[in-house]
Design a protein around this nucleic acid. Structure first.
Lengths: 199, 199
DNA sequence: GTCTATACGAGGATAGAC
DNA sequence: GTCTATCCTCGTATAGAC
């Protein structure tokens, strides 16, 4: 897709991208600080020294990981938008990711929430960059609630839904309880109904 | 208070307790893994080497910190219980801590949620021990909802309130927004009203 | 119980050959 | 672009004197 050469070349992902992918995976699974270069190198299959050719510092890798997640998230929101359904169905897509990712969430929490939380504790400069992930969802949900006819309190509803999903992910992980996710998703769908103005 | 000698001795806290207090503070502010012995030693005012006399490993300090938090939490719940009011007022006390601790929450999130989340990522043996903090609140809230007349779904309501508070803390910290806490606490109080059976 | 000194390993980062 | 070798710092942990 992003291969610079057109034609019949096999689009083998380059080392840089593979480093970012591996870091993305490990940062989610074991946290940013706890992930070492050695672990990333082991997954990618290159030597430690090598990838200083691609990134000068660990923070640069973090920046690349956040950018990757931002791009993936934008693409996902665009897809939901393109499915040609109404705002209620699109908000339903957002709620559904709790179900889709439930096993990962039980093990490692929400990828966005746990990263932002860790960076806040570290007082890390990239905190705001990471929080742009939340802002992406917040603005998108805001727009959906506007289209749903809740112009006045669209941001309040967007933040409330975001908070609910964070709380559910947090407790599901703490108690290792996937059933809790299912039950609360039911409740969130009912809530969505209740805030949808009658046609 | 816990001084072994009775009488006129000044109840100076011993070094061990001061280490645990300092660790408790730092684990909350900057996270368990990111906190170094040097930082704890700097606060307590003892040399690094010294407090291996009190704790053999960092994990032992963590255990002591969790026990401290468990005891403090039990005492707090007991106090709420002792104030002689009804279950609705007691649940209101729980909601109120979001307001009381709002400035800390904005900076460092919920002390329970962020610790449990970090230990989950580290796949740390103390995860379950830390999660006992959540269980303390869960069981206590459960009991309050039973007394409120919601025996059938007491645990569901307890978990929902716990999840809400986690979500609010998470987003308030991410967006550095204390006003969000205030607004959502209003909403949580209204919700509590709505689940309280009419007398 | 408190201190100094030190061992030991891990992790981030660099230099330079291929 | 990739590798090996190496440096440096920091953090945990230990030994032993006072």
């Amino acid at each position: 897709m992003e291969s610079p050469v057109k034609g019949h070349e096999v689009p083998r992902p380059n080392t840089r991208d593979r480093i970012v992918e591996a870091a993305d995976f490990l940062f989610y699974q074991t946290g940013f600080e706890h992930t070492s270069f050695a672990e990333i190198a082991a997954i990618v299959g290159v030597s430690r020294g090598n990838f200083y050719h691609h990134f000068k510092t660990k923070d640069e890798i973090l920046t690349a990981v956040i950018d990757l997640r931002l791009n993936k998230t934008r693409a996902m929101l665009r897809d939901w938008q393109a499915e040609g359904q109404g705002p209620a169905e699109r908000i339903g897509c957002f709620i559904q990711i709790l179900i889709t990712n439930q096993s990962k969430i039980v093990l490692h929490g929400c990828p966005v929430g746990t990263l932002v939380s860790e960076l806040a504790k570290l007082d890390h400069a990239a905190h705001d960059h990471a929080n742009a992930l939340f802002t992406l969802f917040r603005d998108w949900l805001h727009e959906q609630f506007v289209q749903l006819g809740r112009k006045e309190d669209a941001d309040v509803l967007a933040m409330r839904l975001l908070a609910q999903s964070q709380g559910v992910a947090s407790l599901a992980s703490a108690f290792r309880d996937a059933e809790f996710i299912k039950a609360e998703v039911q409740q969130m769908r009912a809530w969505l109904q209740s805030v949808t103005p009658a046609a």
